[in-house]
Amino acid sequence: LPSDTSQPIQIEADKAFMDQKAGTAIYEGSVLVRQGTIEIEADYLKIFSDPTSGELKRLEAKGTPSKFRQQLDETGAMIISEGDALEYDTVASKLELNGDSYLKRDLDEIDAEYILYMLNDETFRAENRGQGRVNMTLQPAKNEETP
C-alpha cells in the first residue's frame, strides 16, 4: 500500500550480529521482515543504517530464494517477487532483484536475471545481464467498452 514505506520495520530471526560503529546489523535464520503490507523472507539479511542518525537506509537479503510481497491496493492485488539476492532501498523505495529473479504483479509476470521495481510509482525494469532473454507476460489492459 502507498503508506507502507513510511511504516516502522520489524525483523524476526534466530540470531543477529550488530555493529553500532558501522551502523550495520546481520540477521540470520528464518528471517522475516515486515513493513506495513511489505513482507520479505530470507535466510540472511543485512541492514545498513546511518550510524549517527540511526536512519535505516537499505536491506540486503539472500535466500534460496529470498522473497518479497506487497499488497498494491485495497482490492488485495499483490506484487510477489523472488530472487537469489534482493536489495530494498528504504529511502528511495526501490527494490532490486538479482540472479534468477521473478516478479508477478497482479496477472503480469517477468522472469529475468535483474529486475528493478520502483515501489512508489509501481514501475519495473527487467534485464538479462548474461545470456538468455527477459520473459515478460503482460495482460492486456481491460477496455471500458469490452463487456
Binding site: E12, M18, Q20
Partner: peptide, 18 residues
C-alpha cells in the same frame, strides 16, 4: 570496545522510519 553485539534466540528488531 568494538560496540558490537551478538544476539541469540528469538531475535526481534524494530526500526522506526525517520
Amino acid at each position: 570496545a568494538s560496540e558490537q553485539a551478538q544476539l541469540e534466540g528469538n531475535v526481534t528488531g524494530y526500526y522506526e522510519k525517520l
